[in-house]
Design a binder for these strands. Structure first.
Length: 626
RNA sequence: GCCACCAUAGCUCAGCUGGUAGAGCAACCGCCUUGUAAGCGGUAGGUCAUCGGUUCGACUCCGAUUGGUGGCUCCA
């Protein structure tokens, strides 16, 4: 499982279809590839170089695996490393590589291992994990007989199961680079010591390294935080607060278009829209389970008239109350209640990330109440909505993940009913298999009330996020005493599907900015058309053109400033306006426009009516074409 | 929240080892009247994030706070 997953992560810059193809045709796991060995070996070499910066025994080494584009190693050191150390570390690594030291494997007993690593508390911890429970460096159980092995190259020995290159000379000394330092908790647990993690990138050759670094620079250019400012879509203000975005008129257009789309789709799928308050008494969140299970994600309460009130982190309890507000029959089901409600979550300060992770968010939310018999069909109808959206947006690079509970979280972060967890997880798994939808499984990723299908995507800089989500709730309807009368005249508790195929407006827009690199399809563009007069003499014609388009419902503006036409075109290009209409003597005389598209193509003498018809068609069909 | 780093005009950035600030773009005002990605000139704009300390003197050194960045943890 782990290997499979690492492999998926390894290919986050390739379209989904690539790893599937690679998986099926080559069937070589990442761990058996040459580059994996190179990166793994680089991690050891780096650990040696870093250790040598200090007196023997002073540097405590933890773990150092290969990752998707390179490797890292975690250390506990007498002082903080800084980027100034990188050059020296790299230089020493090149020396070690040049020494052509063989990697020698040795199988040892736990006692020998502990003796070798006396004073190295993290290694001792690992050895004890291997010895006692057969637990790997991530704390996950290992299968089969566990052997403890060492790999030694030059003067450096590490506890390691390999594999490695045969000798350090097989590594290209000009195809790696130390990238950054970051904090990381031992065994990934925030209760443990925080270590210094040094990240490096490693490749087959210099060209691959160069290509990778270039790709990182390209990715930075499409970072939604940068484009959001450049395209004037949203901003943050220190006085307003972290994670609380301010949407400008241009950004709001995109949100409005997404809502319009969602309402159309949901109308077609039988949803009804509802509206609920942002605030509620704590009683509601006690009943829903949010206060017992989700309190740390919530803003603290405010006291009013002797009651505690909370701002909502989710819309579901309100929708449950709407379900409960009248007597429900099986004939009412599935009951689909949609609301793009604004929620507030107290995300830890360090977790905030542009629009992708905010504290105030508008969910593309709906709750669907179904009988167990209706579950599969309805759940898959939601998956169909996902697919419809992803096709519309041309999103290909995603992974559907079945997020499961973990037994040790029962009663803490998960509702304490393991039998029901296992049952509903099986229902979701079977529905996905029956629907022929590929997915991966991850433990300990569920919502507190049930398992879910999350759609994982990656931001421009490679950080992973859940975009859409489709969740089953087997617990909360019962807490709310929700029932419907079934065909036999008996009271029955419904299941609830929580779903957000368009994620939150914030994350969706953030994602789309990066997905399109700011070049939105016409229907999503904050400005459809900019009319550019060649001289002042054409200003009236330009203004009338823009007004006419505006009055027909399009987002059109005329640029009547005193800049030259060339500069105005440049301005419109930089804002990624899809259509520029340049008008001069010829156009005024003939009632035409010169159409310049964002891609630089040009069409002269186009009758206004023809342009308008084309624009209308592009917008109404939500065409991906320019 | 944790570890590290960063913070100069709306934006992008200069400012040497402490002697109280500069450029380009944007904005505004003129001139030019222009054919598909920057015409020319001028004006204005900064308690150098905030607060405190060291110093004769702080944008520069130190501390705290706020906000951001890279990770970790967490997540729509």
């Amino acid at each position: 499982m782990r290997a499979f997953f690492v492999f998926i992560r390894a290919s986050f810059f390739c379209p989904l279809t690539d790893w599937r193809r690679i998986m099926s045709e080559l069937t070589i796991p990442y761990e058996e590839t040459e580059i994996y060995k190179v990166r793994h070996s680089l991690a050891h070499i780096m650990a040696q170089a870093v250790s040598e910066l200090f007196e023997p025994g002073e540097a405590k080494i933890a773990i150092g695996p290969p990752i998707d584009t390179g490797f890292y190693y975690d250390f506990e050191l007498p002082r903080q490393l800084t980027p100034e150390d990188f050059k020296g570390i790299e230089k020493r690594m090149r020396q070690i590589i040049g020494g052509k030291h063989p990697f020698e494997k040795r199988i040892v007993t736990a006692e020998e291992a502990k003796a070798e690593f006396a004073g190295q508390e993290f290694k001792i911890d690992l050895i004890e994990g291997l010895e006692a429970g057969g637990v790997d460096e991530y704390g996950e159980p290992l299968e089969g007989d566990v052997e403890i092995s060492f790999y030694t190259h030059d003067t450096f020995t590490d506890l390691c199961r390999g594999p490695h290159v045969e000798h350090t000379g097989q590594i290209n000394p000009s195809a790696f680079k130390i990238m950054s330092i970051a904090g990381a908790y031992w065994r990934g647990d925030e209760k443990n010591a925080q270590l210094q993690r040094v990240y490096g990138t490693g490749w087959k050759n210099k060209d691959e390294l160069k290509a990778h670094i270039q790709m990182l620079e390209e990715a930075k250019k499409r970072d939604h935080r940068k484009l959001g400012r450049e395209l004037d879509l949203f901003s943050f203000d220190e006085e307003v607060g972290p994670g609380l975005p301010l949407w400008t008129p241009r950004g709001t257009v995109i949100i409005d278009e997404l809502e319009k789309l969602a309402k159309e789709v949901e109308r077609r799928h039988g949803y009804k829209q509802v509206r609920t308050p942002h605030l509620t008494k704590e009683d509601l969140f006690i009943r829903s389970g949010h206060l017992p299970y989700y309190a740390e994600g919530m803003y603290p309460p405010m006291e009013l008239d002797g009651s505690n009130y909370y701002v909502k982190p989710m819309n579901c309890p309100f929708h449950h109350k709407i379900f409960a507000s009248s007597h429900r029959s099986y004939r009412d089901l599935p009951l689909r209640l949609g609301e793009y409600g604004t929620c507030y979550r107290y995300e830890k300060s360090g977790e905030l990330f542009g629009l992708m992770r905010v504290r105030s968010m508008q969910m593309n939310d709906a709750h669907i109440y179904v009988s167990e018999a209706q579950f599969e069909e309805e759940f898959m109808d939601v998956i169909d909505i996902y697919k419809e959206y992803f096709e519309l947006f041309g999103i290909e690079k995603y992974v559907m993940q079945l997020s499961l509970h973990a037994a040790d979280g029962l009663g803490k972060k998960y509702v304490d009913n393991e039998a029901l967890w296992i049952k509903t997880e099986g229902m979701v798994r079977q529905a996905m298999i029956n629907g022929g939808v590929p997915f991966v499984e991850e433990k300990d990723e569920a919502a507190f009330y049930g398992p879910k299908i999350d759609v994982q995507i990656w931001s421009a800089i490679g950080r992973e996020f859940s975009l859409a989500t489709n969740q089953v709730d087997f617990a909360v309807p019962e807490r709310f005493d929700l029932t419907f009368v079934n065909a036999e005249g008996e009271e029955e508790t419904p299941l609830c599907i929580h779903r957000a195929p368009l994620s939150t407006h914030e994350r969706m827009v953030g994602f789309l900015i990066e997905h399109y690199a700011g070049k939105f399809p016409v229907w999503l563009s904050p400005e459809h058309v900019r009319v550019i007069p060649i001289t002042d003499a054409h200003a009236d014609y330009a203004k009338k053109l823009a007004d006419d388009l505006y009055n027909q419902g399009f987002r059109a503006e005329a640029d009547l400033g005193d800049k030259r036409m060339n500069a105005k075109i440049r301005d419109a290009q930089k804002m990624q306006v899809p259509y520029m209409l340049v008008v001069g003597d010829a156009e005024v005389e003939n009632g035409t426009v010169s159409l310049r598209k964002r891609d630089g193509s040009q069409q002269d003498g186009l009758p206004v009516a023809e342009f308008t018809a084309m624009l209308k068609e592009k917008v109404e069909t939500r065409s991906p074409e320019l």
